[in-house]
C-alpha cells in the first residue's frame, strides 16, 4: 500500500484506513516480530509486540504525510520495536551480558561479518528449498518447524486432518533434507 492510497482511505474513514493497512501488513509484521522474539519470547510477547508496532505506525501516519510504498516504513518500525522488545525480555530473564563481565569477550568475533553472510546465504537457500516443496507442504513445514504450531492447529487452518499434516510434514522434511544435502547443507 502506498502513502497516497492510505491518505485517501484515511480521509474517508480513519478506521477503514487502519484496518486496510493492518490487513495488508499484519502477516509481515508478525513474521518480523516472531523472527526477533522466537528465541526468547512467548506467543503473547510476539502479539504484544505486533500491536505495539501497529499502534506506532498508525500514530505516526496520523501526524506525518507518508509518500510511496509503506512497507519499508513499517518494516523499520517493526524491526526497531521487536529489537527493543527482545532486549526488554532478555533483561527480565537475566540473559543480558554485562559490559564489565568477561563474558562480553565471548561475543566478539573476528568472523562476525563472514558468519552473518553465511547465515544470510543459508536462510535464503532454506527459503528457496521450502518454496520448491510447493503448497501445502511448504506452509506445513514453516508452520510446524518454524512457528512450532501443533498439527491440529495447522490442520484446522488448511482444512486437513491432523494425521495428514503429520504425514505431509514428515515427507516434506525428508524431501527438504535431501534437497539441502545435495547443496552441501544438513538440516
Amino acid at each position: 500500500m502506498t502513502g497516497e492510497k492510505y491518505s485517501q482511505l484515511y480521509e474517508r474513514s480513519p478506521e477503514e484506513a487502519y484496518r486496510a493497512l493492518f490487513d495488508e501488513y499484519c502477516k509481515y509484521v508478525y513474521a518480523i516480530a516472531f523472527s526477533k522474539l522466537r528465541a526468547c519470547g512467548t506467543a503473547e510477547d510476539t502479539e504484544e509486540c505486533v500491536s505495539d508496532i501497529f499502534a506506532e505506525v498508525f500514530f505516526r501516519l496520523d501526524s506525518e504525510k507518508a509518500k510511496g510504498e509503506l512497507k519499508g516504513f513499517i518494516a523499520t518500525i517493526a524491526k526497531r520495536r521487536a529489537i527493543n522488545k527482545y532486549y526488554s525480555l532478555n533483561a527480565k530473564t537475566g540473559d543480558t551480558v554485562s559490559l564489565d563481565s568477561g563474558e562480553i569477550s565471548d561475543l566478539v568475533s573476528d568472523s562476525d561479518t563472514e558468519h552473518s553472510a553465511q547465515r544470510s546465504d543459508l536462510s535464503a537457500e532454506l527459503a528457496q528449498k521450502i518454496d520448491e516443496l510447493g503448497e501445502p507442504d511448504s506452509t506445513i513445514v514453516v508452520q510446524r518447524f518454524y512457528y512450532e504450531r501443533s498439527s491440529a492447529d495447522i490442520a484446522s487452518d488448511l482444512g486437513m486432518k491432523p494425521s495428514a499434516v503429520r504425514m505431509r510434514s514428515a515427507r516434506a522434511m525428508k524431501k527438504l533434507k535431501k534437497a539441502l544435502e545435495k547443496d552441501g547443507y544438513t538440516l
Binding site: Y28, A31, I32, S35, K36, R38, A39, A75, Q118, R119, S120, L122, S123, A124, E125, L126, A127, Q128, I130, D131, V142, F145, Y146, L180, E181, G184, Y185, T186, L187
Partner: peptide
C-alpha cells in the same frame, strides 16, 4: 557440510522474511 536449522530464519533478511 554446513548445518542449518529453522532458527536460521531468526533475524532473517528481507527475502527470507517474505518466504516466511
Amino acid at each position: 557440510m554446513k548445518t542449518s536449522q529453522f532458527d536460521i530464519f531468526d533475524s532473517a533478511d528481507d527475502n527470507a522474511l517474505e518466504a516466511i
